[in-house]
Amino acid sequence: MKLLTVPGILENLGAIRQFVNQTGREAGLSGQALYDLVLAVDELAANTVLYGYEQNRQPGNIVVTAKTSKTEFTVTLEDTAPAFDPGKHNLPQDADLIQPMEERNIGGLGIYLAVKGVDGFKYQRIDQKNIVKLSKKLPPGS
């Protein structure tokens, strides 16, 4: 298991992506599958920074854990912001995404991309922490 702890600020999104990129590659992910997982983690981390910490004027850390099993690679994000279950967020519907650009207001797009881009998505609230687990299946032979 590998772990990264950073202050929850936008400036650290690049470091979080780099961590997921590197650990995911070591686990056997590559190409679009790895990109999708990096995007999912980045979207949720950005959400934590903007709407969890900054909006509530409540700074805190983001803890990122990477774990590999025989069949999947899992990234866990932990924060101490107020409770927020991304899976219960009002996601855009497919019909929203075919509106002309001038008429669009895509709230929740980041979470939509995150959920669509992973094989497993689980939210828990434990000890005043938001814990989100994102997993990707590993290609055979990894």
Binding site: R17, Y35, V38, L39, D42, E43, A46, I106, L109, G110, Y112, L113
Partner: peptide
Amino acid sequence: YMSSAGIR
């Protein structure tokens, strides 16, 4: 790389 922030 581009996240939803780029789309917005």
